[in-house]
Design a protein around this nucleic acid. Structure first.
Lengths: 253, 253
DNA sequence: ACATGAATATTGGAT
DNA sequence: ATCCAATTTTCATGT
């Protein structure tokens, strides 16, 4: 998996290494170095000299990680052009992207480590508890929202946006359901309000609005009341014990 | 900067390494290995055996990177508890977080590399072109939005959200300005609509709404017209040549 | 290519 | 702790 590595490379070694393994493609290249990072594109930023981990993946994505946080200090989701060169005797990496026009420029002041890794592509990733899954589940079992509900449509696009679930209740009234997989905020309430108002205008029928989410913020609940809309508690993930509940097999050293 | 590294560690060596360098704190630890990753918390996910780079930062954040993309396959912004142990003879890392209750579980099947890095904290990061900066600039020079405009408030919180810029125009009418640092979408139009409607209710005065952004999508412009709101072109970053315009110093090898 | 909206969003700021 | 809104959001998806 480790294809190649150089510790404390000289400027020339670093450039040669990057040149070889970036050109080859296929490899994930990491540089651990003191460097300066400059970004210019959708915004602009400058990072003074500091220690960073630069990660270049085979798909052309680039990220510069500092000592904290999940989010990189600088990044580029895609690069169309990667160049390595010398500037004032310092190795410089230019990562360019067209559309949008963006540039990340990294000057390596002192490099501790450069390595090329072979990460085979992997498959088999499953995510549970997305809003999409929640929507499917509720479309199949609308009684979880309220008894007697009949789902007419999912992801129904109208001019002011898309309605998550469009339904008719036991008494024949139209119902607009807005789903949130996490805590619902005021924004969700306003979204629902907009749909309900528009559907009333379009159909001339009485329309009820339901916000379905696991929880709701206090201000959002207040706004919901004012707008005469309803909240319904619905969880994205069925409650169950997390994987930690298998202590028998786990032995700390 | 490279504190310690072991290539092709045995299970025992890996556990000992993690135990030492995670306990010590301060270090950024990376494991390159074939592993299985399991997540359970706000959602749930399973990643089958595959090659990944696991990054554990000193602040307790964890991320698992695959062969592509800026976004990790699995992550945890914060961990309150990190444990390493053996399960069925396999090294396992448990990263737990309270509030929200979350768990990432990584089983290392075959480890190619484990390393501990010393990344000194860095200062000196400057970002230009944020919405906050745009707001400051426009508050100082409101004529960039329209002549005769007087800014009354910035980030004015009303019950349905925060108004970016609240102003009065040359004729004495109230103006609500919604700013976007990038292309404005329908969502921004709805936001503005919400504020304008609410301010009209609260004041009883006529209120104009202006969406200020560098560009706007076609559907958003249409929605803006229907709602009788205005668009004003304003750029977040002053136009200038990107750093690439210094070819004289750059010599590709 | 453009537009839309979700996300285990993350992160920072205000209350 | 809670809530809200920006983000170089990224990313998948539909048109």
């Amino acid at each position: 998996m480790l294809r190649d590595q150089v510790l404390d490379p000289t400027h020339e070694e670093l450039i040669a290494f990057l040149d070889e393994h970036l050109r080859a493609g296929r490899a994930l290249v990491q540089v651990v170095a003191e460097c300066e990072v400059l970004y210019h594109g959708r915004a602009a930023s400058v990072a003074d000299a500091g220690d960073y981990v630069v990660m270049l993946k085979a798909d052309g994505s680039l990220q510069v990680h500092g000592y904290k946080g999940v989010k990189p200090v600088n990044w580029q989701p895609q690069t169309d052009d990667l160049r390595v060169g010398l500037e004032d005797g310092q190795p410089v990496l230019l990562a360019e992207r067209r559309s949008p026009e963006e540039l990340v420029r990294i000057v390596f002041l002192e490099t501790a480590l450069v390595q090329a890794l072979d990460l085979r592509e992997h498959a088999g990733f499953v995510l549970m508890g997305s809003e999409a899954e929640m929507q499917r589940a509720l479309a199949r079992a609308p009684e979880l929202i309220e008894p007697g509900l009949t789902v007419l449509d999912r992801e129904l696009p109208i001019d002011v946006g898309g309605i998550d679930l469009f339904a008719r209740d036991a008494l024949g009234s139209l119902v607009v359901v807005e789903l949130k997989r996490a805590k619902a905020t005021q924004e969700a309430v306003h979204q629902l309000e907009r749909y309900v108002t528009r559907v009333r205008e379009l159909t001339g029928e009485p329309v009820r609005g339901v916000l379905a989410a696991p929880t709701i913020t206090k201000p959002a609940l207040a706004a919901l009341g004012r707008a005469e809309l309803a909240f319904r508690e619905v969880t994205a993930l069925p409650a169950c014990e997390p994987a930690t509940a298998q202590p028998s097999l786990f032995e700390p050293p």
